[in-house]
Computed example of a mutant assay.
Amino acid sequence: MHEETRMAQEREQEASKALNEQENFLRRQDYLSDEELTENLLAGIRREKAIVESWLDSGDCFVLSSAGKVHLPQCSSMRQFMDREAAWAPYLRDLERVRDWSGDTYPSMPVLRTRAQVEDLKAYKTCPMCAPTLDHSDKRQGVRGWTLLKAGSLKAKHFGKTFSLAGGSSIGVLTEISTVETAQGLDFRAEFDGLAAPVTDPMTQVMYRTPRPTH
């Protein structure tokens, strides 16, 4: 097992353990005074901040939303999850929200993943605002044994691969990709040796056979 994968798994286990402890602890807050409850909440926030900061310090951190969209940690739309103090602020202002715990009302921790873990997902979309640089901007689960992606997501690593259109017709090996900024906007071109004319629509879906694991 690679060291990066082991460290990521350890971070996930620590995060899960801490959240379970936090949840079980908060179930038992009815008997505490406001001052005691506030201090316990602040202690929990410090633990959650430490977990998030550990991921950020690793330098290999992406945020996965419930809709399957991938964000950079600094994305403004993820602040409500990444900033644990801001997430818990309404509860610190209204302690009865804590005492009225119902099992699913507390602010969720962000779902944090490494680059390798994101790329292992069968499908994901990247956030158009923070635009994380991953292998795909829109990865979809296609035909079994094939990787489906939009032409605009093609990169240098795809050179030499034999592609087909989503409908199944072969278009040959990818030989060139380019994006040129013009007065009219961006001019996209992807050339394949089996096509007489290049693909110019970055939304065109293409696919190639997914390599089988060698072990």
Results as ranks from 00 to 15, higher is better:
Ser58Asp: 08
His158Val: 04
Gly68Glu: 01
Glu23Ser: 13
Phe81His: 12
Ala15Ile: 00
Ser33Trp: 08
Leu56Ser: 04
Gly142Pro: 06
Glu181Leu: 13
Met78Asn: 10
Asp34Trp: 04
Tyr208Ala: 05
Pro132Asn: 03
Arg99Leu: 01
Thr133Glu: 14
Asn20Pro: 05
Leu26Thr: 02
Leu72Trp: 04
Cys75Ala: 08
Ala86Trp: 05
Ile51Trp: 00
Val180Trp: 00
Leu37Ala: 13
Pro132Arg: 12
Arg6Trp: 10
Leu42Gln: 15
Arg27Ser: 03
Lys69Glu: 09
Asp104His: 15
Pro198Phe: 00
Leu64Asn: 08
Phe62Glu: 01
Arg27Gln: 11
Gly142Asn: 05
Pro107Leu: 12
Lys139Ala: 10
Arg209Ala: 11
Leu37Ser: 01
Glu23Ile: 11
Arg189Met: 07
Asp120Met: 12
Thr147Ala: 03
Gly103Tyr: 10
Ala50Trp: 00
Leu56Thr: 02
Leu72Arg: 14
Arg113Asn: 04
Gly168Val: 08
Glu48Val: 01
Glu39Thr: 13
Gly59Met: 07
Leu154Cys: 02
Glu14Asp: 03
Leu165Ile: 04
Ala183Glu: 13
Lys139Leu: 14
Gly59Gln: 10
Ser169Pro: 03
Glu119Asn: 07
Pro110Ala: 08
Glu3Tyr: 10
Ser66Gly: 04
Trp88Val: 06
Pro128Phe: 10
Gln117Gly: 11
Ala151Glu: 02
Asp138Tyr: 14
Ala67Met: 11
Gln205Val: 09
Thr175Ile: 11
Ala156Glu: 13
Trp88Gln: 07
Ala86Val: 12
Thr147Gly: 02
Met1Asn: 14
Glu4Tyr: 09
Pro132Glu: 06
Ala89Val: 02
Arg97Thr: 11
Cys130Arg: 10
Ala86Ser: 13
Arg6Asp: 08
Phe163His: 05
Ala87Phe: 03
Ser153Tyr: 07
Thr5Tyr: 13
Val52Thr: 01
Val118Asn: 07
Gln80Trp: 04
Arg209Ser: 02
Asp60Ser: 09
Asp34Ser: 10
Glu191Ser: 15
Asp57Val: 05
Phe159Met: 03
Leu32Ile: 03
Glu53Cys: 05
Ala156Phe: 12
Phe159Trp: 04
Leu165Pro: 03
